[in-house]
Design a protein around this nucleic acid. Sequence first.
DNA 1: CTCCCCTCGC
DNA 2: CTGCGAGGGGAGA
Length: 433
Amino acid sequence: MKKNVIPKEGVYYIYSIYQQILPELLVRDLTKLFYDIEMPLIPCLYRMEKRGIKIDIQFFKQLTKELEKEIFSLQKEIYQLSGIVFNLNSPKQLAEVLFDRLKLPIPKGKERSTASEVLIELLPYSPIIEKILRYRELNKVLTTYLKPFPEMCDENQRLHTYFDQTKTSTGRLASLSPNLQNIPVRGELGQKIRKGFISEEGYLLISADYSQIELRILAHITEDENLIDVFLQDKDIHTTTAAKIFKVKEEEVKEDMRRFAKMVNYGLIYGMSDYGLAESLRLKKEEAKEFMENYLNSFPKVKEWREEVIRKAKEEGYTKTLFGRPRYFPALLSPNKTLYEQAKRQAINAPIQGSAADIIKKAMVEVDRKLIENRFNIGLILTIHDELLFEIEKERIEEAKEIIKETMENIYPLKVPLKVNIGIGKNWQEAHS
DNA sequence: CTCCCCTCGC
DNA sequence: CTGCGAGGGGAGA
Ligand SMILES: [Mg+2]
Ligand SMILES: [Mg+2]
């Protein structure tokens, strides 16, 4: 709920809007979604925004100081190595330095670009590249997180985001001003930044993260026996998938095989084709095709479902999530092949991503209600798509943990269990399990 | 102001 | 030719 969005005069129209949307809700069978999920979510989100999350301002400022020192010397070294002073933040100028002035090659299969993916390929050609990559990493965290956040805090060193309930096409929430759904987590620097998000004195943070919620939803929707089996036995989905793709025993699955399977699993959720898979993994077409076939034979209903969801979306014009949330796809009638193919991928993804959003929203309403009912002092403070973050008084941590886990895992029973991993700590890094 | 490039998260 | 977002900053209007 962003500040000042409702003008005084606007309130006048709410009843007339209600009169218009009620019949619309009824004919589209959306009353449950509206009254059981989205409406109760509004006060819940408002409380989360009001509670905010505490950051260690001194820690942010100290880290800023250290990284600014490093970034300044990086900048100097980059200008030295390139023999020219230019604006490092300008991809256009940087491309001119790298590809025209220093005559570095454009990797085959890639466009002329300074994206990190391209720069990594250029690492062997010049010592300037690693410095640019590090500069980018530091500049990103400094300008997006470390420098702005201390300025945005309230008098209690707490940051308050806004959750936008209407922004996304799938039903997810969006977080803005600041966005607290894209706080760095990967790598040493990400872990360090997360240590700056802390609990109040006498409190701890609890992170509750749905394990593989989208793949569990895929298992539920497709009713694929093998996929369901993996989750009923609580096996590692990526390891199991790797074993099936490569036709080896699960004990023989190596780390890179598991990583590959993970990409395949997510690729399927995102509507990826075998061509796209081959491309992203730089595989020979035949290999990718064989792995893809092994996958589809292992989880046959996934392929059937992907075709069925597209067929239905063409016929009816929309897809639906578990809770009946529609997403419309006019582009499925487009003569433009690019738009058409894109719409097909979106139509595969929307029911999965959107159903995950349905489930976590329902869990939020329910957990928030229970924690308030039981007189917890702070409670739910953030949602990051499949994770809920809570701030709870130390003495009642175990009590809260039980309520949270039990509520989230049983909020909407599927044909496979929903599993929630809980972590506890005095900062987000410790709590994020 | 908008568009684009780039990079952070799930 | 893998989905959904936010946001910093450059470039050009
Ligand atoms: Mg998770
Ligand atoms: Mg997560």
